[in-house]
Design a binder for these strands. Structure first.
Length: 428
RNA sequence: GGAGCGGUGGCAGAGUGGCCGAAUGCGCCGGUCUUGAAAACCGGAGAUCGAAAGAUCCGGGGGUUCAAAUCCCUCCCGCUCCGCCA
């Protein structure tokens, strides 16, 4: 959610910033108009309340002075104001609700540093590392869904029998691999990030804070009977850890990490990248998240990006970094870098982490503040996050990259400790 | 799921209709004293909106009343007992 004061002080600036994300200026104008109207009505309402408060006080004094006649006449006067107050009250509430609704749907203005662009085709390639297409042999050009079947470590068919298409069933060493990847990512980041294990089913308020609701309800699994939402990412619960709280600046940045399942309906993605593990409804992920002051935020964006890259590098895989353009930035994103790794079997670059700076967009929704060590009052925090490791695509890249000519998989060394001494995955 | 009790400032905890944005204690900040610290003493400090006047905030929402932390309804959360269960 953006600051209404920004609308009041710099309407043109907000329109221009949001235009870069393709937002129609009339929506911004509408928000400003509703805000102006609401403020006017609130003003009137407050004046009336002030009059009533004064009368009440005088009534109390009159009663105490046993001046019943005065008290009664003041009481009648106060009662006369009631209808007026109720009208102003409902008017103000309606306008404020309307304003909030518009503001909740309004995207976060992009960073001036984010590249302009209309779609993902305009994302800027920052760099590519450790990538040499000539290095891959024919034995590595087998997609992971075939390898998975061949070795009996991934069973998409039975996954579909159990839960429907786009649900994975990992088996044996495949299941171990998915767990090992998460364990490794946690171990690699626990030096600075507090490990959390939050709930996977969360309240509506929690999903509004992170920004998925109200606009992206179609993407979320919802348990109607209990009115709980299945998290799409650990970002949902982690962002609400400090909801409605005031943090001390001395405790910032506050770094959190969680390994959770992630549930995505993928409502708009039917038929796209649906083979194997490229896009599934449920997957595991280790997420890094930080609460920071506005001054600390840029450095943290870089830190989380480096840590995301760290997971790929640790596994000996190539990577590339994309600077996401304004047209591809999500509603809540201010600045975003994607980390992709190369999967030789599918011959695709797979997004394995999305590192994002939300500025105070989520903090304003969730009322997450901090108390500056200098000065008075409270300020909204900035939130940032990024995946340390998203399992399915990393699983795919590892399996395809490390496939040997004999069809087995030679596990990268970092994973050996998690495999009870095994160094390869062979057929059963 | 059933029965009962509760939710007040950073924490503990008073307050049962007006003089309550809220006693008191602890903690915190500043000062006096001290070589320094502690103790003692003095003083200070909540949040949101608003240019201000002022308005709002005692778990959330609604109601009664001229007036609600206080009375009523409802939801959420916590605790105790019972039931059930990994």
């Amino acid at each position: 959610m953006i600051d209404v004061r920004r609308l009041r002080n710099d309407l043109e600036g907000v329109r221009a910033a949001l235009a870069r994300k393709g937002v129609d200026g009339s929506v911004v104008d509408r928000a400003a108009a509703v805000d102006a109207e609401a403020r006017q009505v609130v003003d009137q309402r407050d004046d009336l309340r002030a009059r009533k408060n004064l009368l009440s006080k005088q009534i109390g004094e009159a009663f105490r002075a046993r001046d019943t006649a005065t008290a009664e006449s003041l009481r009648a006067e106060s009662k006369d104001l009631e209808g007026q107050e109720a009208d102003l009250e409902t008017g103000a509430a309606a306008l404020q609700a309307e304003l909030r609704e518009i503001l909740l749907a309004l995207p976060n203005p992009p960073s001036p540093d984010a590249p302009d662009g209309a779609s993902e085709a305009d994302n800027v390639l920052v760099r590519t590392e450790h990538f040499d297409p000539a290095r891959y042999g024919a034995h590595q050009r087998v997609p992971h869904w075939d390898i998975g079947t061949e070795l009996g470590i991934l069973d998409m068919e039975r996954g579909a029998k159990i839960s429907g298409s786009m649900f994975a069933l990992f088996r044996g060493a495949g299941a171990t691999l998915q767990r090992a990847l998460c364990q490794m990512a946690i171990d690699n980041n626990v030096d600075a990030y507090e490990e959390m294990r939050p709930p996977s089913l969360v309240r509506t308020e929690t999903v509004i804070t992170s920004g998925q609701l109200p606009k992206f309800a179609d993407e979320q699994y919802h348990l109607e009977r209990d009115d709980l939402w299945a998290i799409a990412t650990a970002e949902d619960p982690l962002t609400s850890v400090a909801r409605d709280e005031v943090l001390e600046e001395a405790n910032l940045p506050m770094r959190l990490m969680a390994y959770t399942p992630c549930f995505r309906r993928e409502a708009g993605a039917a038929g796209r990248d649906t083979r194997g593990l490229l896009r599934v409804h449920e997957f595991d992920k280790v997420e890094l998240m930080a609460y920071a002051t506005p001054e600390q935020a840029p450095a943290l964006l870089d830190e989380i990006l480096q840590r995301a890259i760290g997971s790929v590098v640790a596994l000996g895989l190539p990577y590339r970094v994309l600077d996401i353009c304004t047209g591809d930035l999500g509603q809540k994103h201010h600045r975003q870098f994607d980390v992709e790794t190369y999967a030789p079997g599918c011959d695709m670059w797979l997004e394995v982490s999305s590192v994002t700076w939300f500025t105070d967009y989520q903090a304003r929704r969730g009322n997450i503040r901090y108390r500056p060590s200098e000065g008075r009052g409270t300020e909204l925090v900035h939130t940032l996050n990024g995946s340390a490791l998203a399992v399915p695509r990393m699983w795919a890249a590892v399996v395809e990259t490390y496939r040997q000519p004999d069809g087995s998989i030679a596990l990268p060394e970092v994973l050996h400790p998690y495999f009870r001494g095994a160094t390869t995955i062979s057929g059963r």
